[in-house]
């Protein structure tokens, strides 16, 4: 254990094979890893692609992972199911569509997010904004139209209609129900 090589440390941790049902009762000890495990939200916190400070791109970007722009982009961005972050040195000249958009830098163009747009302090945005939840911090500069996307919560399905009573059927009288009594005198 103490003489384990460095290479062994670098190997990716394989998940333990799933034990058959009931097998755990036959074991004396459950093997456990002493190494730190990946956080549960690893996939969410992990950054996707990135465009560095010195990179200039002209063209349309279409992606299926999160994107961080710290450089300059002249063209549209389309990340329908992911997050776009424009860093403080980032500059986008074009329209942007993503699930979430976070702006620390500059965008000249329209933005549309199916969920959230955050325009951070000192960010500069000129263009129209359409999102479910627009959040604009103080000292951010924004010029344009803001429109919120309203999400209607689905209504519960209507109960199936009770079968219509047959015309000739007599409504059953409950045993405890008192019969109407008419007294004449």
């Amino acid at each position: 254990m103490w003489n384990r090589s460095k290479k062994e440390d670098d190997l990716p941790q394989k998940p333990a094979p799933a034990a058959p049902p009931g097998a755990e009762y036959g074991r004396e000890a459950i093997p456990m890893s002493a190494y730190p495990t990946r956080p549960a939200d690893f996939a969410q916190t992990r950054s996707g692609a990135a465009i560095g400070k010195s990179v200039v791109i002209t063209g349309h970007i279409l992606g299926k992972e999160d994107l961080l722009i710290d450089g300059r982009l002249e063209g549209d961005v389309d990340l329908p199911e992911h997050r776009l972050t424009v860093g403080s040195t980032g500059h986008v000249q074009g329209s942007v569509r993503a699930r979430e958009i976070v702006v620390h830098g500059t965008i000249h163009g329209n933005m549309e997010a199916s969920e959230r747009v955050e325009i951070k302090k000192n960010a500069r945005v000129i263009g129209d904004l359409k999102a479910q939840r627009p959040v604009i911090e103080d000292e951010a500069y924004f010029k344009g139209n803001v429109e919120t996307i309203r999400v209607d919560t689905p209504k519960p399905a209507a109960r199936p209609a009770a079968p219509a009573p047959q015309a000739d059927a007599q409504p059953p009288l409950l045993p405890s129900e008192p019969k109407p009594e008419i007294r004449r005198g």
Binding site: P134, Y141, K143, N145, V146, E147
Partner: peptide, 25 residues
């Protein structure tokens, strides 16, 4: 100049907001 309070207020009515900071502009 836009701020979150005004944005929420106007869009809460279902209206569309155009924001501009006249002095800064």
């Amino acid at each position: 100049g836009i701020n979150q309070a005004n944005l929420d207020f106007v869009t809460g009515f279902g209206h569309r907001l155009y924001a501009e900071d006249l002095v800064r502009s």
